[in-house]
Amino acid sequence: MSFFRQNRKLLLVLLGLVAFGVLRAPWENRLREQLVKQRLLLPPPGHTALQQMSQSALMGTLGGLRSLVATYLSLDAFGDFGEKNWDELQRKYRIICNLEPRDETHWVSVVWHIGINATAHVQYYSEEMPKYERERRFQQYCSEAIKLAEDGIKQNPKSAPIRLQLAEVYREKLKDPCNTARVYKDMLGLEGTPGYITRFYGYFLADCPGKEKEAYAYLMRLFQMGEKHHLPTLFVKIKELEEKLNVPFPRRIKTDEPERPDKPKKPSNVLPGGIVVP
């Protein structure tokens, strides 16, 4: 009893803390839900990410310096990019993306690094490696890039840049017109989708076996929308489809290609999404 008498104040303080804690808990849970829903608060990073972090990064993350840790790691990852250390780079980006899953620029970067740079590196600059190994690694990096992009899209369902980068992997690396077209289709109507995607969707659908009719209908709709879309590739693609589908001659479009001034080519170091290759 004397303990309670002597520590009356301490007990009262504890009681106050507990009462306030119990009262605020439901309110705070509701607020947390709302903040997460509004994407203002990030959900906790997965335990794998926390486990993979260095001690200091973990402390920083737990201490509320999540953005700073993510930024530091992404700067650090540039070192791995310079060293062509793709696996380490991917590991760091897994953590970064876990820390800030809603920053689409992280996903775009990692898909670009793994899907474009790492694949190019094993394809063209790893001559010391046996051909079989290079091909296997190429496929592995492509799959990893696709997986990363899909994870990114799950976190950012309305992201056009991640899809653009994913389509790049399908288009440039895997030469897969069907999946390229599928991704472009997903992008239609999303904010930030470049205007040319409307046409690109049709172009790649046209190359997808079994989708010719659908592609022809789509490209014809574009054609009928006006001269704005009357670009050389559109003509070429429609002509190819007319041949493939045996479209009766009277229904075929005129063969004259529109006159088009010579336009400078897009700089070779600029990738879709505006990413500049150093």
């Binding site: 705070e28 203002l40 608060l41 999540r66 953005s67 809603r102």
Partner: peptide, 13 residues
Amino acid sequence: QLFSFSEGIVLGE
């Protein structure tokens, strides 16, 4: 952590 909603705002939310 509840008071860290500035992170979302900085990301453009």
